[in-house]
């Protein structure tokens, strides 16, 4: 997952870039911070980048799977997401009442009263990271084959963190490769993507750096999790300056989960040990925004080398 905890509201540079994107029609304002429409050009760039990721990962022959941007509430509860990131979760609630309740609902809406308090939780939760629906699917297949498994995912993800930083959306797409296997297998996977990720982004002419990172764990307990994650080098990010050079934006992340998901879901290696997992995540909107930032809002004026790389 990408850490989206920094800077909860937009600063001047972020707001300037957001307004420029609105003015050009690249992003479309919906009245909610972090919830935007995308133009055809934006989607074209994003999809070409998505395809470029596929190209760079093709040799590994990952098994592709696509889930909708919501997942089972039960799976979500078991995943432990609420232990770590309760502040980011989004649950889906619906009206489940009768005719009488419907009348009350409409009255409340009309008078501007809170109509949401009687909404009932459904069995659906918004997907917080593309890989969350995957782990129980892996576990269900039984022990991993000797070579482990590799999956290719992409999903819209939700994180409740309204912001005027265009690079911190509440609903955004995350492309992921997820590796499950022995510790050696998953660390080798992460290492290879640390290399490939840099090569891929350099080919698109953007400045970048790799840094150690942590996820936005909640509260005091979260401080320990953050410190532990950093001390053990579990998370790295590929950062690109978008609205700030001092605080560049995490566009790719390289995560080693140790046996956390293996334990949680009972995923076993071929010899019966608890499986380790790792993933590489690509923030598709963030990369797209980085490209617009560095090559300009006018796609026709982008450097030929970059358009060649994306459109072939």
């Amino acid at each position: 997952m990408l850490d989206q905890s920094k800077s909860p509201v937009g600063d001047a540079a972020q707001l300037d870039f957001l307004n420029a994107l609105f003015d050009k029609g690249i992003l479309v304002d919906t009245g909610v911070d972090g919830l935007y429409g995308r133009s055809g050009e934006f989607e074209d760039v994003l999809n070409r980048f998505d395809a470029l990721v596929t190209k760079h990962g093709a040799a590994d022959k990952a098994e592709a799977m696509r889930f909708p941007p919501a997942m089972s509430r039960k799976t979500f509860e078991t995943s432990g997401y609420l232990k770590s990131f309760p502040q980011l979760a989004g649950t889906v609630h619906s009206f489940c009442g009768n005719d009488h309740d419907h009348t009350t609902l409409l009255e409340r809406v009309a008078t501007g009263e809170d109509w949401t308090k009687d909404q009932q939780a459904t069995n659906v939760v918004l997907t917080p990271a593309a890989c969350y629906p995957l782990y129980p699917v892996i576990a269900k297949r039984g022990p991993l084959p000797v070579e482990g498994r590799l999956f290719d995912l992409q999903s819209y993800c939700f994180r409740h963190e309204p912001s005027q930083d265009p690079a911190r959306m509440q609903l955004f797409r995350m492309r992921e490769y997820v590796r499950a296997g022995t510790q050696e297998q998953v660390l080798a996977f992460r290492e290879s993507w640390l290399e490939r990720g840099q090569k891929l982004m350099r080919s698109l002419g953007v400045p970048l750096e790799i840094d150690i990172a942590n996820d936005p764990f909640f509260g005091r307990a979260g401080r320990m999790m953050k410190a532990g994650q950093r001390e053990q080098g579990l998370k790295f990010e590929l950062l690109i300056p978008i609205t700030s050079t001092e605080k560049p934006t995490a566009c790719l992340s390289f995560n080693y989960h140790q046996d956390h998901f293996g334990q949680t879901w009972g995923i076993e290696t071929a010899d019966g040990a608890v499986a380790h997992t790792a993933c590489v995540g690509f923030g598709l909107e963030r990369v797209t925004l980085a490209l617009f930032k560095h090559h300009g809002l006018d796609l026709a004026k982008w450097p030929k080398a970059v358009t060649q790389e994306l459109w072939g």
């Binding site: 432990g80 232990k83 307990a221 320990m224 532990g228 994650q229 956390h260 334990q263």
Partner: peptide
């Protein structure tokens, strides 16, 4: 001792 367990212990 896992990271999660160390947090439980701390609390």
């Amino acid at each position: 001792l896992s990271s999660f367990a160390s947090v439980q212990l701390m609390l």
